[in-house]
């Protein structure tokens, strides 16, 4: 497959003695939306978190295999995890703005990268908020606390916060699962816009959502990658029985 951004090869992941990912092989294309679906506990979120090494934070996790981004193995000894995470941004299931102002939330990333010039910061923040399609809603209250925003706005703010670091890949862990339908559709629109510039990997419970926004879909089941194909094929003509069962709602 051409234009692949992320390669995963023979990936195994254990939580202590429990296997959570079993021999995953996956190539994620650049500037496309790739959806990871499957019943809860199937390992899709775990897999997503291996892509920016978020699982490093959990002590009992052991990882074998290779994941490479742009040809560089991110589990190599010499990898700088901090910079890796600047390149691979992440949006979480529950919106998690800092208890700071809207401006400071978005400026957080640039600031830790050493940008302190006020004008430059303002420019970055404005652009990020515009790209996250929330600028119009917050431009008049940049100094208000981010915690005063609605759930959907908070989630878009978190996306803006991620964009402000200027990543290449954005990982989204069920970003709309806690939101109402209107906010969800706004987020979905945003994702479709964002894929022009970013490679997006999204975990979702919602199959319609995967069908609507993704180009590729991977179906996980009990730690294994069952099927991976173009979204169209997965939803219209799945190869495996398990995939079909899941998509048609027979389980999960």
């Amino acid at each position: 497959m051409k234009n692949s951004k992320i390669f995963t090869e023979n990936l195994y992941l254990h939580y202590g003695s429990k296997m959570a990912l079993n021999n995953i092989n996956l190539a994620i294309p650049e500037k496309k939306v790739t959806a990871l679906i499957g019943p809860s506990g199937c390992g899709k979120s775990t897999y997503l978190r291996t892509l920016n090494r978020m699982n490093d934070l959990i002590d009992s996790v052991k990882i074998e295999g290779n994941i490479s981004i742009d040809g560089i193995n991110i589990y190599d000894k010499n990898i700088d995890v901090v910079n890796l995470r600047k390149k691979v941004g992440m949006v979480f299931q529950k919106s998690n703005p800092f208890a700071k102002s809207i401006f400071e939330n978005v400026a957080y990333g640039p600031r830790i990268n050493g940008i302190s010039d006020k004008n430059q910061l303002t420019e970055i923040v404005e652009k990020a908020l515009q790209n996250a399609a929330i600028w119009d809603e917050v431009k008049d209250r940049m100094n208000d606390s981010a915690l005063g925003l609605s759930g959907g706005q908070q989630q878009r703010l978190c996306i803006a916060r991620t964009l402000a670091v200027n990543p290449e890949i954005i990982l989204m862990d069920e970003p709309a699962s806690a939101l109402d339908p209107i906010s969800t559709s706004k987020i979905e629109e945003l994702i479709v816009q964002l894929k022009e510039n970013y490679t997006i990997v999204i975990v979702t419970h919602n199959m319609q959502q995967a069908a609507r926004i993704s180009d590729m879909t991977a179906f996980f089941y009990i730690g294994e990658l069952i099927e991976y194909d173009k979204t169209k094929n997965i939803f219209t003509n799945p190869e495996k029985k398990q995939t079909e069962d899941y998509i048609t709602g027979r389980f999960g």
Binding site: I72, I74, D76, K77, I79, D80, N83, L84, K87, N166
Partner: peptide, 11 residues
């Protein structure tokens, strides 16, 4: 890269 940051070397 768009943000000019590389991660292939430990800083």
């Amino acid at each position: 890269q768009s943000n000019g940051i590389t991660f292939n070397k430990k800083k």
